[in-house]
Design a protein around this nucleic acid. Structure first.
Length: 756
RNA sequence: GCUGAUGUGGUGGAAUGGCAUACACGUUCGCCUUAAGAGCGAAUGCCCAAAAGGCAUGUGGGUUCGACUCCCACCAUCAGCACCA
């Protein structure tokens, strides 16, 4: 047989599978369904190794389930709104829409070289009006229920991007996109009321869905529920989780943004207080986080401690945050580390608390999580469907007028005002209520809105009447498995849970969790063990690897490198060469096919069924690495034989098909003249064939292994005979000599242990 | 500081109460080859010339006939959060 040259066979089969629509799914049939999903990608225009790891390995599971007879839905799409498109446009003068759509085309071509079995016919691209129309529809529903609202809050503001940033987008005090230092600024913006759902988003101890503990705990910490009390100190409300320590409260601290500072500040302290507040305002997020040294200023006033009845001083300090609780605390330096540090620095009294105080107050639950600010002063996003009218105020765009399409011609250079404001013809609109001239909202939505519900839309992407058909969604969701990156623990996966619960409350769906199982994948590093990055020059280009070794080898290597969840391993080119070698040996093994498997060749039969069992169970547990190892072991066994059977070779191809779809299709055609191996049935192992008539038994003396003896299966339960056999072993006898056996432990079929 | 995860050969890793180091890479030796590469075969945890034997799964303890695996304490690394009252 001619040599295995991947580039000769891979494009050929990819084209044929596409023409034959081999993986097309019938969504009306959900009896045995599997909805397998990977977080969709941002269309950066280049498919890197991270994408291969993210998409090619779960494709193994999708193909495996299909061969098992499941109706598999495995869609893909693009998270296509967002800043990079706009930045590229500013830099290169290409329109964000053109840049994005051409990148999508390019990436889809690259995706095809992977040989993955995606349902592209259900593709979702979030920057197209047929998708974002429904973002706007959801927004209006939220507005109607009071879940979306206009509010003012201190926000992370990037002076360079001229936009509000979510906490998740601030990295070490800097903007995640441009690296500029983020400052705090009071801004009016659109919010989604995450806090209303905080309690329901908290994970219980034994959740009904299988999500990693790291994700559940991470989300719970982020939500940060704490139960306490609101106490009144002469009109100042404070929040405390330790009301029993109120007798030890020796001063009061207000956040620098607190509204009652003016009331408490006496004339001679006014200058000091004002200059302190000014100084705090000018601090960047980074300075506030790094400068842990306590600072503060005395207002000059006192309030009465309701428990001790003592007059205590009122201070202003930036270690108290306006965004949490009431923005004011009673300081108990005896019980609280931070208060103690402050008291020591400013020489304030520290008195012992009895921990028995019972102040008057009302119970209060506080959350660390804030409402979600979705306003973005940028162009490339979903327009918020709201109109401002001088007469009627803020008016929703009527549902029939959706989508509010993003205008093509705008000046999207950052100028301190939102780019959409420059599209004057678009901004000018007549009020839906009174018909007089009015103006459109010029802010766009955070792209995390787009990705919060895209897996619903995959099921009905072309529906122009409804967000989705309820019947289809009820049949196919929740997802059977959702693969993604650990970086989405606090952002995307939490927001999606929020949207799912909102959809539930709207009556659109009956379930409240959207994924039965979540798997956080690991990370492939550069060959130097560092994160792959262009600036480090350690990026491994998958296209080049595919050219030299083929997509099948790259897929197999990524599956083999370690357990899929959590492994962080460097790319190793000789490791890739190793699996390429394995594929070559599979190719060459076809020359050894002889007669059919002999009925009396029990060992060969056992090896085959053992491998089927192992590969099946390992794929089901997402242990792709050990599934590959199992096939390698079997290949080593088969290679030692002069001749192998049709049955063995076919089984090997079936097991390998999900991992290496091209080479197996080619070999399957060669040996059987059939097509396609990917529509064949997954082999089923036969328990009977796994049975052995002789079993190895470990013989120990004082718990140390001294010999392994073969035991006939029919005497396995006969302790006396086994003991005799064990004593009969020369190696064991050596250790029993001159000793007396105190006890004999026999665990049937596993171990025999002499205690001397 | 809090939360979570992880710790096994030169490397990626396997084994989740019963032969530690499967599988693969790398390395060494041999065969083949004009040569290189590829291919094929053998060896490869550590100590010991070898055998015999002993020692080894971050450290220390415990449970057990038996512990990489379960329990307790500690150390280290990684990730996320962090002046949250």
């Amino acid at each position: 047989m001619k040599k295995y040259i991947p580039s000769d066979i891979e494009p050929k089969w990819q084209k044929k599978w596409e023409e034959d629509r081999l993986y097309e799914v019938d969504l009306s049939d959900a009896v045995r369904r599997q909805y397998i999903l990977i977080e969709f990608s941002y269309p950066s225009g280049d498919l890197h190794m991270g994408h291969w790891f993210a998409f090619a390995v779960p494709d193994i599971l999708a193909r495996f389930r299909r061969m098992q007879g499941y109706n598999v839905f495995f869609p893909n799409g693009f998270d296509a709104f967002g800043l990079p498109a706009e930045n590229a446009a500013i830099k290169k003068g290409i329109h964000p829409r053109d840049w994005t759509l051409s990148n999508i085309e390019k990436m889809k071509q690259q995706f095809k070289t992977m040989g993955a079995s995606f349902n592209w016919e259900n593709e979702v691209i979030t920057c197209l009006p047929e998708y974002y129309k429904w973002n706007q529809w959801i927004f209006l529903k939220m507005l109607g229920k009071g879940i979306a609202y206009r509010g003012k809050a201190l926000a992370n503001w990037c002076p360079n991007c001229q936009t509000v940033l979510a906490n998740e987008n601030v990295e070490a005090g800097k903007c995640w996109r441009c690296g500029t230092e983020v400052i705090q600024k009071q801004v009016e913006q659109w919010f989604l009321k995450l806090t209303e759902y905080a309690d329901r988003l908290l994970w219980k101890d034994n959740p009904i869905v299988d999500w990693p503990k790291a994700v559940r705990e991470g989300q719970n910490n982020w939500i940060g529920k704490s139960e306490g009390m609101i106490l009144d100190f002469d009109g100042v409300e404070v929040f405390t989780t330790r009301p029993e320590t109120t007798d030890g409260a020796t001063f009061l601290v207000l956040a620098p943004e607190h509204s009652m500072i003016g009331k408490f500040t006496i004339a001679e302290n006014k200058n000091d207080v004002d200059s302190y507040i000014k100084q705090v305002k000018n601090k960047t997020e980074l300075e506030r986080k790094e400068g842990r040294e306590k600072t503060g200023v005395f207002t000059g006033s006192f309030v009465k401690n309701p428990v001790s009845n003592k007059e205590i001083p009122v201070w202003v300090a930036d270690y108290i945050l306006m965004g949490y609780g009431t923005g004011a605390i009673m300081a108990v330096p005896y019980a609280d580390e931070r208060d103690k540090e402050f008291a020591e620095k400013f020489d304030l009294p520290i008195i012992k608390t009895s921990f028995k105080a019972k102040p008057q107050g009302k119970q209060k639950v506080n959350y660390h999580i804030h409402d979600w600010s979705i306003s973005r002063q940028r162009y490339w996003g979903t327009p918020i469907p709201v109109i401002y009218c001088d007469t009627d105020g803020m008016v929703s765009v009527p549902e029939k007028d959706l989508p509010v399409e993003l205008p093509y011609e705008v000046d999207y250079a950052p100028k301190g005002k939102p780019p959409l404001a420059t599209a004057e013809d678009w901004v000018e609109v007549s009020c839906p209520k009174c018909g007089k001239s009015a103006k459109r909202e010029v802010e766009t939505m955070d792209t995390f809105v787009d990705s919060s519900w895209y897996f619903f839309r995959y099921l009905d992407p072309k529906n122009s009447q409804q967000i989705f058909k309820k019947e289809v969604v009820e049949k196919w969701l929740p997802l059977d498995i959702y693969f993604g990156g650990a970086e989405h623990t606090l952002g995307h996966t939490l927001y999606s849970r929020f949207f799912t619960k909102f959809f539930h409350d709207l009556g659109l769906i009956s379930f409240e969790e959207y994924a039965r199982k979540r798997v956080n994948r690991g990370l492939i590093l550069g060959p130097d063990g560092q994160k792959m990055s262009k600036s480090r020059g350690n990026v491994v280009n998958p296209d080049e690897q595919v050219k030299s070794y083929g997509a099948d080898a790259v897929r197999l290597y990524l599956a083999f490198i370690g357990p899929y969840a959590g492994t962080v391993a460097p790319w190793d080119n000789s490791g890739l060469n190793g699996v390429y070698h394995f594929l070559q040996r599979v190719w060459g093994l076809a020359d050894k096919i002889g007669s059919n498997l002999q009925g009396n060749d029990l060992e060969a039969r056992r090896m085959m069924h053992k491998t089927i069992k192992r590969v099946t169970e390992d794929i089901e547990a997402n242990k792709f690495n050990t599934a590959v190892a199992g096939m390698m072991e079997w290949l080593n066994y088969l290679s030692r034989k002069d001749q192998i059977s049709q049955d063995e070779y076919r089984t090997l191809l079936f097991l390998l098909a999900p991992f290496a779809p091209h080479i197996t299709e080619e070999l399957w055609e060669k040996i059987s003249q059939k097509y396609s191996i990917h529509q064949a049935s997954w082999p089923v192992f036969d328990e009977k064939s796994l049975e052995e008539e002789e079993l190895p038994l470990i013989v120990q003396v004082n718990g140390k292994v001294r010999d392994v003896i073969m035991i006939q299966k029919d005497i396995i339960s006969n302790k006396e005979v086994i003991e005799k056999k064990g004593k009969g072993s020369v190696k064991v006898a050596k250790y029993l000599e001159g000793t007396s056996v105190k006890k004999i432990v026999y665990i049937e079929g596993k171990v025999l242990n002499f205690i001397v």
